[in-house]
Design a protein around this nucleic acid. Structure first.
Lengths: 263, 263
DNA sequence: CGAGTGTTTGACTGTTCTCAAATGTCGTGG
DNA sequence: CCACGACATTTGAGAACAGTCAAACACTCG
């Protein structure tokens, strides 16, 4: 099983090694800011406990007292809340390199849960250790802070997405975001097909739409020739029109350099 | 004009004095974390340029290069985005004491704008100065970081609000949030009536609903005996039922102590 | 008084939801 | 190899919720 073959990232045993989580996180950080060698080394020195989380299980549960944060080494995860009426809403999706609950660093409890959408390899790090690093290196603190601010910018964008756009536009927008984030560091222009392990129900809960309706929306998007979605693969048939359909502007992702794929 | 008379905060000329912005921000910070005297003094030493912004004008425009952040001394503001279709979505409302664009501290540009919903008194502070303070005092950095994380938690909650709840629930939820935030530091149990200077159209753009529909929702909420909304005043008639109607849980606001008003 | 803005209401339209059932896919075990 | 269950996708039909358009009304300010 190599779900990320399309991204040319090989995992296998390597993923379980100690240094990998912080390395992969370091790569992510370098995509949003300059990271000094010292800071990179400091990150690599973090004590990481790597855990294999099966699909559909919580990585961090909402309301839990949090003394750790985690990096995603492999897999897809999502942060979500459940309403009193029992409906689920995702507020972000996370992929390899992301730190889904760095948001909890200075909160006692996390108000949202993070659940594994596929099998995930997760590296846990103690808050105390991260804070110690931040005190020693203000530049590292700044990069991590920036990371959480970009996360927040994604939340804001999702508020607008779910609040003001119609269903097709919402889905197109989400596809654009995930496509850029999945492709980013390598950013292959030709890379218009990648693993998409999410079910329609999960997509629905990200877009604030019923799963039945998502199905019809996907049908329409296929008919429009925007995307192809089958066998757990998302193929983008027409990037420019998808961007237009999704009213997408990548500014809110705050990549260090504008991706080679102009939009 | 004393829009905050209900909160026993008097402004008038005092508001324009130099130290006030950081003092009011300090009070806000103390509601979410312990702030040492040194840090409080450091905050007070910030160079603040106080500006009077008329209603309906941008305090910070989306996309602008940002070298400053601001504190709201007086008034209501909202962070918002406008979609390609010309629809506006608010992602948060801000009141006296808030720092609407502290989110921009480590971003080059802000992806959302912040606009004044009433006349606002705003104190601008240079990013560079805040960063200098943070380097000197990691504890102050932690408090400010925490502040931005709580902001992000509010965005997440809004995603869920707009994505999964019906219109009445959305509005009730928003009223609960704003009510707690407006009342917080003093937290008067009897304080169930306060200034609400927002128009129905603005409320609509916060809840992802048309203004016509908001009008009907308010009518229903009045009929249900939950709230009273007139003359720019929001009166809460039945707090417990409003909390139930809004499926509201205040955890995501991360107040230092649970408000005296149990919910 | 008139202009401008915000609120309220009605009638109609349209998107999306819910319920329900059929179909497709995959892995397990006989 | 097939039967089976579990899960995901697809489709239909009717209902509910919310949007649009349009007009009347209320209020404030100069």
């Amino acid at each position: 099983m190599q779900p990320f073959a399309a991204l040319n990232i090989s995992f296998s045993e390597e993923a379980l090694m100690r240094r990998v989580p912080s390395e992969i996180f370091g790569r992510k950080l370098r995509s949003i800011a300059h990271v000094s060698e010292q800071d990179e080394e400091a990150l690599a020195s973090l004590g990481v406990r790597t855990v294999d989380v099966p699909a559909a299980r919580d990585i961090v549960s909402a309301g839990a007292r949090c003394s750790h944060s985690c990096f995603l080494v492999e897999g897809f995860a999502g942060s979500y809340q459940v309403t009193a009426a029992g409906k689920r809403q995702f507020s972000a999706f996370y992929i390899a390199g992301d730190a889904p609950d760095l948001q909890s660093l200075y909160l006692e409890t996390l108000d949202s849960g993070v659940c594994a959408l596929t099998r995930c390899v997760v590296g846990y790090v103690e808050h105390a250790e991260i804070k110690r690093l931040c005190e020693k290196s203000p530049t590292l603190a700044a990069v991590l802070w920036r990371y959480t601010l970009i996360d927040a910018a994604i939340f804001r964008e999702w508020v607008t997405n779910v609040g003001q756009r119609d269903a097709v536009t919402r889905v197109a927008h989400l596809f654009c975001e995930m496509s850029l984030r999945l492709r980013y560091p390598r950013n292959l222009l030709e890379q218009m097909r990648f693993n998409w392990p999410l079910t329609q129900a999960e997509l629905a809960d990200a877009c604030g739409v019923s799963s039945v309706h998502i199905n019809r929306v996907l049908k329409e998007m296929r008919w429009l020739g925007l995307v192809e979605l089958s066998d757990g693969q998302l193929g983008i048939k027409d990037w420019n029109r998808l961007v237009a359909a999704g009213e997408f502007n990548a500014d809110y992702l705050h990549f260090k350099r504008t991706p080679a794929v102009r939009i």
